[in-house]
Write a protein that binds this DNA or RNA. Structure first.
Lengths: 353, 353
DNA sequence: TGGGTGTAATTAAGCGCTTACTTAAGCATG
DNA sequence: CATGCTTAAGTAAGCGCTTAATTACACCCA
């Protein structure tokens, strides 16, 4: 507790200069084994933990990267639901950073505080991974004047930055195509998440592409939308049913949580899934395997998104003037029962990259 | 990109000294509004983000707290399952830190790297929250010589440190009591997680207390154990069934994921839950609500654990020589169907604090 | 014996901030 | 008009490391 000891104390105790201590600590060269042992012993005795502030000031590197993400469901109703996605990304980021000897700082932009928070974080890190819409374009470019930034999963903001994302559109196209080709459904609807969310937009686009490819009529907008939550899915499905005289044969839903909600609404309306209405989700959250019917869904490599974005960032920090990188990871269609399939086929389709 | 500008550049550009810039940035006093505006403008123009290393060196505070947690399921089979608990804690920690104007650094100790990682993190933060068994007692006390530490959810390591945890034991006691009192089961088994996990031990203790209170025979050890994963639960349940001529009437399981696995094994063995064997879990993960039968389980205030531990840490950093704190949060029994209840009662029992 | 070559170690100049101390100026007071 | 008080600003000494430049020394070879 109490007083952190300094490199000077260690140097004095082991009878060498601070330069030598520093070299020993950084695995450098230019010292004998005995000296090394003496230094290490002194460091241990004193319980010395070098100050990263001092080191960072001297080296111009803090050894920390930041991850900024939007705070979904802040203290609200559905707050237990949304995390999954972000959490996996965080895990991936942590892993990649640790593997490279760096550490990762995380911060959720609770909408209000966005700007200040971002600058406060920016001052503490060597670079920033910004997930989805957690920061305005203006702040993004302002911060990028002092540290490198990689944009994660928000294709609309990628211009001018390194970018890492998943092929949401390809995934949506692939499930939709499955519904059409394997099951012969022709009356399909799309139920979107928040209208402005880049994910919503991409997924709807993929849905439309598949319809177009099958010469089916292409809608202008999603048939219903809501928040990316269970409650949002329930409401959206109610709206959808109210709107139509006859329910669609199949509904491609923006994410799994909404699908869970949609399922509840359909059950309440005494409709069978998939016999009356088939359903597909997005994300492959744990619950997707456990509901009945188990959800056919599109899996994103969430952890890998986190890993790759941090790797990209570290690479950029190392070599600031390399051409921009853009990385689009593949998504997988996971076939279960909610689409109407009876048994899992040998292997799933892949969203094109 | 490229060159971070410094306080000197800002000072020059706005025609004041660095001291004045510093005062303006820290919301201090001793400058006119015009001066403030000039400084702020210059800072914005230059895209200046103050260096936290320099500031930290001068103030002896980095404004960063660390959260160390064990890396469950590293690249292994069940890796998608375990997160939940840790993730919620991370969320809570982030929230509390941000609310206090600090940031949080996270790191998973991938068993091997434990020690080095811990020291690397320790050098970057003002204090550390250490979750469960992510660090040995020796490292814990070694690090605590230079920065404050709060132990989270590992009652066995609390000695000498600030401590925050949930009342696992009380929760286990409460579900077990429910099984005995409400359903009249007398033949109960306990299926534990990893034998050495503090959670396993606490929960088993609570189970035993409830048996003792009902004058039922108290076992020496859990009837089966496994890892805290679905696969672990499947195996443990198979072992349990193999061991006994007749299955127990009810099984209190160490956590929800194991319960999911146990459920699968029972189904495969053509036993009905809860009609033949009743089951309860721990943690209330999202899937617990979605499986059939929905799981009766014990909920821990995971996010609050994260919040409280960071608050405790910040408090300690602020006032180093205050008496140690120990905080035990209550757990809730969540009644659903897997225990045999037909409908949710008005309110759930509470684990005693 | 002297000069070259390595290796082990030290010296000291920063890195970009904060802050105690000091100065300057404006203003009210007796 | 000298005195003191308040407020706005500047000066400069660190904070604890890293690292380029330098020194000290041992060793080898002609």
């Amino acid at each position: 507790m109490a007083t952190r000891s300094t490199i000077y104390a260690v140097a004095r105790r082991s009878g060498v200069s601070t330069a030598t201590v520093s070299r020993v600590m950084s695995d450098g060269t230019g010292f004998s084994t005995e000296t090394r042992d003496r230094v290490l012993a002194a460091a241990t005795d004193l319980g010395w933990v070098p100050s990263n502030s001092a080191r960072g000031l001297a080296t111009q590197r803090s050894g920390i990267v930041g991850l900024l993400f939007p705070d979904l469901g802040h203290s609200g109703e559905a707050e237990k639901e949304s995390p999954l996605y972000v959490d996996e990304v965080i895990r991936g980021a942590e892993r990649a950073a640790t593997a490279a000897g760096d550490a990762v700082l995380i911060a959720a932009t609770h909408s209000s505080s966005g700007r200040d928070l971002a600058f406060s974080i920016a001052s503490k890190v060597d670079g920033l991974v910004v997930l989805a819409r957690s920061l305005s374009a203006a702040d993004l470019s302002s911060i990028s004047r002092s540290i490198p930034i990689v944009v994660l999963a928000n294709a609309s903001a990628r211009r001018g930055f390194d970018f890492v994302g998943a092929d949401s559109r390809g995934g949506a196209r692939a499930v939709t195509a499955h519904l059409i080709a394997e099951h012969g459904y022709r009356d399909l609807a799309f139920m979107s998440g928040p209208a402005r969310s880049p994910d919503s937009i991409e997924r709807f686009a993929g849905f439309c592409e598949a319809l177009a490819a099958a010469d089916l009529p292409v809608p202008d907008a999603p048939d219903a939308d809501g928040s990316f939550t269970e409650a949002g899915g329930e409401r959206a499905m109610r709206a959808l049913l109210a709107l139509r005289h006859r329910p669609p044969r199949a509904v491609v839903v923006g994410n799994d949580e909404m699908t869970l909600g949609a399922l509840a609404t359909l059950r309440a309306a005494r409709m069978r899934v998939p016999a009356d209405v088939a359903l597909t989700g997005f994300d492959d959250i744990a619950a997707a395997r456990h509901v009945r019917p188990a959800l056919t869904t599109v899996r994103q490599p969430m952890r890998e998104l986190g890993e790759r974005s941090v790797e990209t960032l570290l690479q950029r920090i190392r070599e600031p003037r390399t051409p921009r990188r853009s990385l689009l990871l593949e998504t997988d269609v996971v076939i279960r029962r909610s689409c109407g399939c009876r048994r899992r086929p040998a292997h799933a389709d892949r969203g094109a990259a």
